[in-house]
Design a protein around this nucleic acid. Structure first.
Ligand code: MN
Ligand code: MN
Ligand code: MN
Ligand code: MN
Lengths: 217, 217
DNA sequence: ATAAAAATTTAGACTAGTCTAAAAATTTTT
DNA sequence: AAAAATTTTTAGACTAGTCTAAATTTTTAT
C-alpha cells in the first residue's frame, strides 16, 4: 500500500514529466506540491528506494514503469470521480477538482470499477481530459490550442489546459463550454486576441491568454 | 479542521457511549480503535484540550455538545455513503462498511448535501441504521431484538446489531434480508433458538446468537 | 577557467500518532 | 483496611512528513 503523500508525488511527477522534456526537477515538484525542496529531496529518496522512480542525486527524476502505473491509477480515479461529481451530483466543472483530490485516494479497485460502470465508462472527465484505461494506458488525444487555429476554421471546444476555478468560471460566463462550436473570424495581429462566433450565434473576443488555454477540435 | 484520527475517536466514543451507561473507558476505546491504552490516553488529552470531550483523568470520557455534533456529522456521512455504495453501485451490505470508513472523512459539506439529494434523502442505511439529520440529530428508532419477540407474532426485519461481513453474509444465505417478514413459530426452551417462517414461505431455525443481533418491527 | 548564482541535498528539529515499559491511581478481593 | 489486581497515565522512543539553515553540487556568467 502507498500513502496519500506518495500517491500525490507520483501523480505530480507524471504531470510535470508530461509537460516538459527530460527529467523532472526537485524545485518544480516543490512548487507543485506546495512544499519545500528539502522535503521533496527526502521523499525522492524514499520513492527511489521503493523503485517507483529513477533518481540520481542532483539529476532530476523520472517514473519507473511501476511508478507510472501507480500514477495513472490515481489519475484514473481522480477523473472518474470528477465525472461522478459533475454528471450525477450536478457540481460545476470549476468545483469538482478539489473534492476529487481527496476521493482519488480511496483505496478500492472494485469501487472504481463499479463507479466506472455506473457512469457508463466515460472516456473524458469534465475538463475534457482523457481517462486512463483500467489497464493503465493514457489515451492519446490530438487537440490544438485555440490560439493556433487559422482564421475561417470552425472548431469545437474539447478541453482546457488551465484548470483553476477562476478560468473555468470565466469560460462559463462567456459561454465557452466544452463541446461548443467556435468559428474563428479574426486574429488581432497586435495582441493575438481572437474574435470568434460561438454556436453560430453571438460573437466574442477571446484574449490570447484564454485562447492558449482552450483545446479545440 | 479535524484529522481523520480525531474524527474516528469521536465516532467511536459516540458508539461506545450509546451502548453503555455512564462514561466511556480508555480500554474500551483502545479495543475499538485497535490501538493501545497509552495511545488513547494521549489522544483524550488532546480532544479535551480542544473541548470535544469532557475528561477527568482516570474517570472516563464523555462527548461535549460540539464533540457529539462532530461525531454525528461523521456518522451521517458514513451512512449516506453506504447507501450510495449499496443502492447506486450495487455493493452488498456486507461490503459497504469498509469503503465508507474512508469516504466518511471526505471534507465537503456540499458533497454530502448533494449526495443526500441524489439518493432521495434516505432515512436508513443498508443495515437499517438511521441517518442523522443534516441538523445533527440522531433519529430515534424503537426496534426489538428477534430474540425477544413472543411466539406467534409476525414482525419485519428492520436492522442488525452486528455488522461483520460474516454475519451479514450468513443472513444473505438464509434469506433474512432487511424488510423480510418473520413469523415466530416457536422458541426452544433449552438453547433459546427460534423457529421462524419467512415471508409466509420456508421455515427456518435461527440460533439465539443470530436472533439477538436481528432488529425487528 | 574561475567566480557567482542557482539548485539540490543534508543536518537537525518539529508534530501527529503510535508503541512498550514503568509508574500511579482506582477497583476488587481478602 | 490493607493487599492484590486492574486500569489508566506518563516517560521515552519511533515513523512519516514537514520545516529552516547549512553544506554541497551543478549551472551560468564573466
Ligand atoms: Mn482535477
Ligand atoms: Mn479534470
Ligand atoms: Mn458502516
Ligand atoms: Mn451501516
Amino acid at each position: 500500500m502507498h500513502s496519500f503523500t506518495e500517491e500525490n508525488y507520483l501523480k505530480t511527477i507524471y504531470y510535470l514529466a508530461a509537460r516538459q522534456e527530460g527529467e523532472v526537477t526537485t524545485n518544480s515538484l516543490a512548487e507543485m506540491t506546495a512544499t519545500k525542496a528539502a522535503s521533496v529531496s527526502d521523499m525522492l529518496r524514499k520513492l527511489a528506494e521503493k523503485q517507483l522512480i529513477h533518481y540520481k542525486k542532483y539529476q532530476g527524476v523520472r517514473l519507473t514503469e511501476e511508478g507510472e502505473r501507480l500514477a495513472l491509477k490515481v489519475i484514473r480515479r481522480h477523473r472518474i470521480w470528477e465525472v461522478f461529481l459533475a454528471e450525477k451530483l450536478g457540481f460545476g466543472w470549476d468545483e469538482v477538482h478539489e473534492m476529487a483530490e481527496e476521493l482519488e485516494h480511496i483505496r478500492s479497485e472494485e469501487l472504481v470499477r463499479k463507479l466506472d460502470a455506473f457512469l457508463g465508462y466515460p472516456q473524458f472527465d469534465p475538463h475534457g481530459d482523457p481517462i486512463p484505461t483500467p489497464a493503465g494506458q493514457m489515451p492519446t488525444v490530438e487537440y490544438t490550442k485555440l490560439s493556433e487555429v487559422t482564421v475561417g476554421a470552425e472548431v469545437q471546444v474539447m478541453g482546457v489546459l488551465e484548470h483553476s476555478p477562476e478560468f473555468l468560471q470565466h469560460l462559463d460566463k462567456t459561454g465557452l463550454n466544452l463541446g461548443c462550436r467556435v468559428l474563428v473570424q479574426d486574429v488581432n495581429a497586435f495582441d493575438k486576441s481572437v474574435s470568434v462566433q460561438i454556436n453560430h450565434q453571438k460573437t466574442l473576443f477571446v484574449s490570447n491568454e484564454v485562447a492558449r488555454n482552450l483545446l479545440v477540435n
